[in-house]
Nucleic acid binder design. Sequence first.
DNA 1: CAGTGGTCTAGACCACGCT
DNA 2: GCGTGGTCTAGACCACTGT
Lengths: 268, 268
Amino acid sequence: MQERPAYLLVADELRHRIQRGRYPPGSKLPTFEELQRAYGVSEIVIRNAVALLRHEGLVDTRRGGGTVVRRRPQARRLAMDRYRAEGNLGVGGNPAAGNGPATSFTADHGIGWGEYRLSARYTTMGADAELAALFGVDLGTPLLRRRFVFHAREEPEQISVNFLPLDLVAGTPVADPAREPWPGGTPAQLASLGHPVTRIEESVSARMPTTAEAQTLRMSHGTPVFAILRLMISGDAVLEVCRHIVIPADRVVLDYRIDLAGPPGLSG
Amino acid sequence: MQERPAYLLVADELRHRIQRGRYPPGSKLPTFEELQRAYGVSEIVIRNAVALLRHEGLVDTRRGGGTVVRRRPQARRLAMDRYRAEGNLGVGGNPAAGNGPATSFTADHGIGWGEYRLSARYTTMGADAELAALFGVDLGTPLLRRRFVFHAREEPEQISVNFLPLDLVAGTPVADPAREPWPGGTPAQLASLGHPVTRIEESVSARMPTTAEAQTLRMSHGTPVFAILRLMISGDAVLEVCRHIVIPADRVVLDYRIDLAGPPGLSG
DNA sequence: CAGTGGTCTAGACCACGCT
DNA sequence: GCGTGGTCTAGACCACTGT
């Protein structure tokens, strides 16, 4: 029977106590010095143990502020129906249906239009291999590249980097950053150009954030992100490629519905 | 201008080299001692830097084996259409369509029936609050609990913990662990009981694995997992609740399609 | 200002992979 | 057996939080 490293034993013990409610969310763990004495080990053992819990997303540590059991933020549910609402908004014309302008983002976060802010950066570039394949166009085809950081109540919540064919949007209000935020979002923009979105495809990945992403989104350690590749399709044409929507994974649950009742796929 | 800690500078440098291809996937980084000398810092600085990269999922370290740039496993695409195939399988009766028995899992992994194995553990329990709400039954209603670990070529790939109403399956082959693996999976099982699945709902979360999950799935460090809550619905009745499907997130991409062309939601 | 966690040093021994 | 990364000691100074 080989001995488990001391820091793992300490981590197991602390984890157990957190999960059993001995250290409830929001409470402080004992200081390193106290833990050191309690377990009769050196500081680095405690440090390694706490670092492990931090990378598991169980605790947060702050200089001078102690080690705090993380509160699980209640996750928002991102339902696919929100896109339906956006589409209708765009098609119908004015968003005068209810409480003023809206977007899937504002609906998701339950915030008003005034609490919604985004920072935008627009550039143009030629399609690289991946984008060319997704759009079904030639390499180097001019695209409008838009990078958004969505804020709810001044808190950064989501990064989006997306692309539109330049020949579709050049000279239109859609290509004007000053027009953002746009009620109804991208579906409304595409509808305003005469191309209502008929299908959306989302490819969901999860990974650890890059340091830049963690900084932009003010993320706590030990939290993965969703990285979603999204296509907006009108008829058979891909009109928008969102290369990545990046969302901290502790803040959302993605809801999808799959209907099997209708006629299944053709072949086979 | 405050100074960035040394270990972050070293991590930045190494990360940059990895991303630029200076250290390609599968290659070894210099040893700690070499890095120490190269940067003129103590060992712990190197250690902290490499630990950071490991938690970001960029490298793997092994005692005696050096620090290796992780190869990105090519992610499998889990498309929602696979459920359609399963449903047809069950309804049609025999799975004699093509290459023998199949499941969404075998299709996903491109493996034959012989390379597919699962370990199963069945128990019964009363519905807790969450399950009762999802099934729409009373607290304590008897349920069959099934825990599966799916293996492809003897590699553990996926954990599933799911529940069926006991009054639906008691005494049927579905409640017999020895009948697994079952061609067509759960949709086929439900169809065999006269309840074809008409709708599936999936709620996708991502988080760091528990230590038990990491061990069961033989995961490398710094990799999050998808945790999917899945409902199988026939008509208006929830027939199966999969409380969590756990899949290492570096191995899959989840594809979803959202059709907007049809009649939108009723209200509003 | 006291207390806390963060970074770092110099050094030791251990466990594992490779050859 | 040798070299690698893993664990650990004892101690120092720094940066931030709270009072």
